[in-house]
Nucleic acid binder design. Sequence first.
RNA 1: GCGGUCAUAGCUCAGUUGGUUAGAGCACAAGAUUGUGAAUCUUGGGGUCGCGGGUUCGAGUCCCGUUGGCCGCCCCA
Length: 437
Amino acid sequence: MATFQTLPGFREFYPEDFARRNHIFRLWRQTANVFGFAEYDAPVLEPLELYKAKSGDEIEAQLFSFTDKGGREVALRPEMTPTVCRLVGARANALKRPIKWFSIAEFFRYERMQKGRGRCFSQFNADIFGEPGPEAEIELISLLIQCLCAFGLTDQDFYVRLSDRNLWFYYLEALGLDEARSRGILGAVDKLEKLGDDAFKDYEAAFGPMDPVLKAKVLALLEIKSLAALEQALGSIGSDKLTARLTDWRKLLGALDAMGLSPFVSVDLGVVRGLAYYTGFVFEAFDRKGELRALAGGGRYDDLVQKLGGPALPAVGFAIGDMTFALLLEQRGLMPAIVQAPDVYCVIGGEKERLAAFADIHALRAAGFRVDYPLRELAFGKQFKVAAETGAKLALIYGADEIAKGVVKIRDLTQRTEVEVPRGQAVASVRDFFTGA
RNA sequence: GCGGUCAUAGCUCAGUUGGUUAGAGCACAAGAUUGUGAAUCUUGGGGUCGCGGGUUCGAGUCCCGUUGGCCGCCCCA
């Protein structure tokens, strides 16, 4: 038993675990690349103030924060958004538009562990800056969907709930509510799924008893599941803001439909995402069975870059967490058993034969083939057993007989066939085998 | 921060009303086996029974505390 334990909520990645994580990161990165997003990274440690400025002083309780030796108040990053806002804000005038960035990074939050949540986790983050219209949402929501589909997940496995804080505000404004009351209503909507009627308690405490007519109108909006129903419910109100906003909705959903992504997207105004900084469309991805916490979440935050000291710059972004996502892949049997099989395993007679083998081993490796061999002398029978266990496609046999004849025996471990080739042609023969020649 | 539950080998788990030196399977390693495949057999390494205290002639077992895991609440950027 080790004397030292891993800190609570932290994870270790033994090679097998690392291979699984790599698989996830590789497909995320590949997907972001084909969507034309550029990868970036930034410090793990940031000024504590950066997070307080974005989320308020209370956030410190959820952070790994401390004072460094220079007396600076710092925190391990709990999310990427403030950081990326600072990066983009600092060079906003010099960056080529559109600004489409992504990152895959590790984050830290001082929280109690739960299924799908730890104190350290990785996130895929993607953001678009400088694009005020729904064109940015089109790119990001389609990227989000493809980031999950790349693993073999389908619309049977997950879906994206799409909502809009602007629509709520315009609607409540049309009903005669001021902004404070509207925010109160949104807070209640956020809690409605969990708390039921109790969700309105805070609102009633601040603004008095809930008007039953208003409540009915709010609940009616939550029932809407399609664009058509949305247009029917809101189009007739006669609000210019609502009418203009519905045009954005048509653009967004029309584009996603043209991509064939409609089966993944559901209109659901119950999603408001508590965060005060979201300013428009918001969306969250969930597993269809509803067994796991959110797979991904995001939305528009047009004011945040400026709030953090940059120029006024509209922005949309989302993040996918790795923990819940890995759980979903495992549930659906989509986490591949990753075997890091060598291309070639060398079977070696004795010390003399070993020297002969080294020439080919190094030449093959330099040519890009993955080659392995026993580090110590091993009985032939054992070596073939090991060769088979590693999953190698070919065995190259360097025995006393072969060396004497000036050949190498190449065994196809799958077909169980063997051929002899002259030494010096070993690399070429292996290359032919793997290129199908 | 709160509640429930659990903790024996790398993994999955046995371990009698408290009783000798704590076991099995898998995994790992060596050999049978110095020229051909995941088999079989033999052998081996690996444990402060999470940690600390208490009760007892005697504690893996009972009691208290503590640390950690899992599940849930709060929160969830």
